[in-house]
Design a protein around this nucleic acid. Structure first.
Lengths: 200, 200
DNA sequence: CGTATTAGATACGCTACGTAGCGTAGCCAT
DNA sequence: ATGGCTACGCTACGTAGCGTATCTAATACG
């Protein structure tokens, strides 16, 4: 390991990046999206509001979508932390889905919807969304499902990924299309009726 | 009924709108979206390709999204016709969902995703999508579900709309996020496992 | 110090939007 | 036929936002 003097986080030469600038940008983006939706959160508006030059933004993010993905991941991970491993997987799943529903009903839902739209034409945005948000969360939930399968609470011949999508899909669908609201009772019914078909 | 001479569709004064122009526009939009995705289907590109003036487009549609919604409704209604009422509702549901999956895997899926994204900031686009696509289709499917409930194939205490969303949701979710493909086997598994929890 | 890099501030070229005005084309009623 | 009305294609315009280039000042390290 030829790493004599350098600490693991070797300080880069030159002026370091201002964490304050980064925060100001993300906060400004958050506020703008909150009040005016996706199309209000332009790079120029964000820069103006954050008191930051456009170039500072472009030094950190290649485009608007990447910035908003970062924002989404930040919001999403605080709003709905990964499910904790307990001794009652089914209960953990219920809690998790309720939290996801709450998050989706908030800013995250609109943001995800908008970004997924933009991701259609931009593979990098799609990749950022998948790796930053969907893969980690799906994996975490799938883990709990697998745990439930180990305890014989869910049939083991059904792929965990499928189960996760059966749970999340209906919530997501309603959030995206907005034809019906995602209420607590809706979440409960989806869980109950889905679980009924998955018991051994 | 004071409508002596006039036919029901009284001819408007002035030069009538060219149906040919309309077709050319929609076809051009279709082709452009097909090859280059949402961001390739700009108004200017569509106008150029259709051999039509930009103003002609703006005379008919208030913005790009409305145009594309019209296109989507056109594609969607031909690609996946409304489910036919047969004497085996469960089979009809399976057929319907398979067709929806095929349509979503094609152009419609990308188009819907993109438009739903744009619909976030534009209530009119959202309304157009709901009334042009989602409401009619959901209602048609819900009807078949209700029929199945009448025959005792599906529990009657579960709202038909909920059942529809439990079926469609997972497909839609995968199409939107693209974390996993929507295969025939996936559709079958969703249907089987969902139905298992909905039987009386 | 010298060097490297970021920060802020403009300015720039580009694309696309949506609008306006012009002259022409087509349909109807007089 | 003619006049009224509207759609059509064309061109040009002003605006918004993107992403880049260029400059000076600030901030770290050796």
């Amino acid at each position: 390991m030829p790493q004599h003097k350098q600490p693991v986080t070797s300080a880069a030469p030159g002026r370091p990046r201002s964490e304050q600038a980064r925060r100001a940008v993300l906060d400004a983006a958050h506020a703008l999206f909150d009040s005016g939706g996706l199309k209000a959160a332009t790079i120029e508006a964000i820069a103006a509001r954050a008191g930051v030059a456009k170039t500072t933004i472009y030094r950190r993010w290649p485009n608007r979508a990447s910035l908003l993905v970062d924002l989404l991941v930040e919001i999403g991970s605080t709003a709905a932390p990964s499910p904790k491993i307990g001794n009652d997987p089914l209960k953990a799943i219920r809690t998790e889905l309720r939290e996801v529903a709450v998050a989706l009903n908030g800013i995250s839902g609109r943001l995800v919807t908008g970004l997924l739209g933009e991701a259609q034409g931009d593979p990098e945005v799609r990749a950022a969304l998948l790796h930053g948000l969907f893969y980690p969360r799906t994996a975490a939930t799938a883990k709990v499902v697998a745990q439930a399968q180990g305890l014989g609470q869910i049939r083991s011949d059904v792929p965990a990924k499928l189960v996760v999508d059966m749970f999340i899909g209906p919530l997501f669908y309603r959030i995206m299309v907005q034809h019906e609201p995602v209420t607590e009772s809706f979440v409960k019914q989806v869980i109950d009726n889905t679980l009924a078909g998955l018991r051994p």
